[in-house]
Design a protein around this nucleic acid. Structure first.
Length: 656
RNA sequence: GCCCAGGUAGCUCAGGGGUAGAGCAACGCACUCGUAAUGCGUAGGUCGCGGGUUCAAUUCCCGCCUUGGGCUCCA
């Protein structure tokens, strides 16, 4: 088919196309269609991402990356990061630039500014203006392969780039370095003006004019290579999209997420607060937050009772000897509150409940007939989180785990984990989560206890359980806790964000340390295996996630107030009070707001408070024993009998 | 802990070297109203805390506390 002057390339749909020899990926895109050529940002040639300007070879399989695909946006963002670096280098002579990858929804670039200078918000504006100038200048991104020696010369005034080059070529690079430059004896660089060249593996868009729908978002500190002891760099975050509309949509999504911020909603809805007098990372629950929390906890207790768990309570403090035995003082001391001295002993607030549950197990001799023994506690723990990491309810210092420790035999392990997966998903579904992702964390040989055999057995049990369920999972190598492998379960919330909530962890360390034993059928002593598991994880954190998931509009069964009764005028207050009393008698959380203000205002207030049902009673309702029902997110219905509303509310509560 | 940005009335925020302002909320009065903000009035602040510069600091400078965004860490 092809002679010396044409080449043949294969397209993703299986078809082939002839092109003149020396044709580039862009030529290919143009030959397919002008719209494709316009949207093209890079190409995938035989599985590798390449610039559009790269010549194609005969027989290559080629697909064009367009700017509205994830991969295409990635290229777009990476190129925009380069423009950011170029702008900073031109505005801040002497600035050292380090790395600047594309990330979810955007990109960042880290800089080391001369004299430890930092960026201000004004700087960000100037940088953005300079970036727009560069985009308008339509500078081509031109790729060059250069030898390591030449690259080192080229970047002689850029120590961070030299470090990356050296690490890559010495083979000690990790993934992020390889991502910057590629690997081998030569490195690739991209030049897009006489004054700016950056080390990069590519690919990039053909020219800066292909960019433009971007915004710089914020400036933050970041350590070089993420190392706390390394230099603190200035990181500029930005976002970039293929079109103005996509950029605006993204900014809109951010604004929407901000409206759902659980800290904002917690104040607006009077749910809880973090008084500074109390200390960082410690919350107090106001009545409306407390009722929701109680409902969550009651539900959890009910499900655990149904699931064969036994409830226990343990104290908040323990003698240091307990945490020495459990190993927390060896492995977890940095995460613990400082000790207090009393009665010639040293006591610590507990960072976990497991050691105390082990004491309960150990308190008397156990038989195999008791296993699996499932101990459950809503146990409040205290962890010393570093000040800069605290974040509303999502990261706090005092929190309550829906914590359980299951003691079982090796043979029971797989079954137990299998039923746990059901249990977890069933409980989470009750809270409106439908999408789950599973992660299996395996052993880190440098930070683990226990024999290889038992790690393998436990990991296998976790795998088997997930396979039985047919759930897909990702493996995170080396991500396990020191005491055993685990399954972490992420959920997607109503606006698609991912939260890690539940965890199921195998532990063969604590049974060892506490010398836990049971008597088997063979009348001999055996060591049980222990499972740690939490569904909410932390009740506080789960509450925060729920608040954002529902955007404050709790379903009827969880809403602090389920129905509010509003008399149209003071003349209707008696009837309104009767309606409210009837609802309360049926166990519904109901209140009444008297006619001191106009009806419209009171309805508005109820809506702002996200109350599921607003009931209006006026003359007609007094006469007919009815209410006007104004449901959240629905239409007003007049003349509904109180009894039928009660049935409706009952159904709404049951249904969720 | 480190980098950046904040801290002004209960909340959201404006202001700015000459001892402070709005909207909402609160309170009072009038209005009694059928589905998302009635009107008028009153009260409310050591402008985060401490120090410095100045005739004068809420404003400028320094330190601390605290909140938020990141880094690191993590439920």
């Amino acid at each position: 088919m092809s002679d010396s002057s044409t080449i043949e390339v294969r397209l993703p749909d299986g078809s082939s196309r002839s092109l003149p020899e020396g044709a580039t990926a862009l030529d290919l895109a143009k030959s397919i269609g002008s719209r494709l050529a316009k949207a093209a940002v890079a190409a995938v040639v035989n599985g590798d991402e390449r610039d559009l300007g790269s010549p194609l070879s005969n027989g290559a399989t080629v697909s064009i990356l367009t700017n509205d695909s994830d991969e295409g946006r990635h290229v777009l963002r990476h190129s925009t990061a380069h423009v950011l670096a170029q702008a900073v280098v031109s505005l801040f002579p002497g600035a050292k630039f380090t790395i600047g990858p594309a990330i979810e929804d955007g990109f960042y670039y880290d800089f080391d500014l001369p004299g430890g200078r930092t960026f201000s918000d004004d700087d960000l504006q100037r940088i953005e203006e300079e970036m727009r100038r560069i985009v308008t200048a339509d500078q081509p991104f031109v790729r060059h392969e250069v030898s390591v020696a030449d690259a080192l010369k080229m970047f002689s005034d850029q120590p961070y780039k030299c470090e990356i080059i050296e690490r890559v070529t010495s083979g000690s690079a990790d993934g992020s370095d390889a991502g910057e430059v590629g690997s081998g004896n030569s490195v690739s660089v991209y030049r897009n003006s006489d004054s700016f060249v950056d080390l990069c593996r590519g690919p990039h868009v053909p020219s800066t004019s292909r960019l433009g729908h971007f915004a710089l978002m914020k400036v933050a500190g970041a350590y070089w290579r993420g190392n706390e002891k390394g230099p603190m760099l200035q990181r500029v975050y930005g976002t970039a999209w293929e079109s103005k509309a996509a950029l605006e949509e993204h900014l809109h999504r951010l604004a929407e997420a901000e409206k759902r911020d659980h800290r904002r909603l917690a104040v607006e809805m009077d749910l809880l607060s973090f008084p500074s007098e109390l200390g960082g990372g410690l919350a107090v629950w106001h009545p409306k937050g407390a009722i929701v929390r109680k409902l969550m906890e009651d539900y959890s207790r009910q499900r655990h009772a149904d699931g064969g768990y036994q409830f226990v309570y343990t104290p908040h403090l323990a003698n240091e000897k307990l945490f020495a035995t459990s190993g927390h003082l060896d492995f977890y001391k940095d995460g613990m509150y400082p000790p207090m001295e009393m009665d010639n002993g040293t006591y610590y607030p507990k960072p976990m409940n497991c050691p105390m549950h082990c004491l309960i197990f150990k308190e008397r001799q156990r038989s195999y007939r008791e296993l699996p023994l499932r101990l459950f506690e809503l146990g409040t723990v205290y962890r010393y989180e570093r000040a800069g990491t605290l974040h509303g309810l999502l990261r706090i210092r005092g929190f309550t785990q829906d914590d359980s420790h299951i003691y079982c035999t090796e043979e029971q392990l797989t079954d137990e984990i299998t039923s746990l997966l059901d249990f977890v998903m069933s409980v989470l579904r009750k809270f409106g989560f439908e999408e789950f992702e599973f992660n299996l964390s395996t052993r880190d040989p440098d930070k683990s206890v226990g024999s290889t055999e038992i790690w393998e057995k436990a990991t296998e049990a976790l795998r088997t359980a997930m396979d039985r369920h047919g759930v897909a999972y990702k493996v995170k190598e080396g991500d396990a806790a020191f005491y055993g492998p685990k399954i972490d379960i992420d959920v997607r919330d109503a606006i698609g964000r991912k939260w890690q909530l539940s965890t199921i962890q195998c532990d063969f360390n604590l049974p060892e340390r506490f010398q836990l034993e049971y008597i088997g059928t063979d009348n001999a002593r055996h060591r049980p295996i222990m499972l740690h598991r939490a569904l909410f994880g932390s009740v506080e954190r789960f509450f925060g996630v729920l608040l954002e998931h529902y955007g404050g509009s709790f379903p009827a069964w969880l809403a602090p107030i389920q129905a509010r009764v509003l008399p149209v005028t003071t003349a209707h207050e008696d009837h309104a009070a009767q309606v409210a009393a009837r609802l309360r008698a049926r166990g519904f959380r109901t209140d009444l707001v008297a006619a001191d203000e106009q009806l419209g205002k009171r309805i508005r207030n109820a809506k702002v408070e996200r109350i599921p049902y607003v009931l209006v009673v006026g003359d007609e309702d007094v006469a007919a024993d009815t209410v006007g029902v104004n449901p959240r997110g629905g239409d007003v219905r007049r003349g509904v009998t109180v009894d039928s509303f009660i049935a409706e509310l009952e159904a709404a509560v049951e249904g969720t």
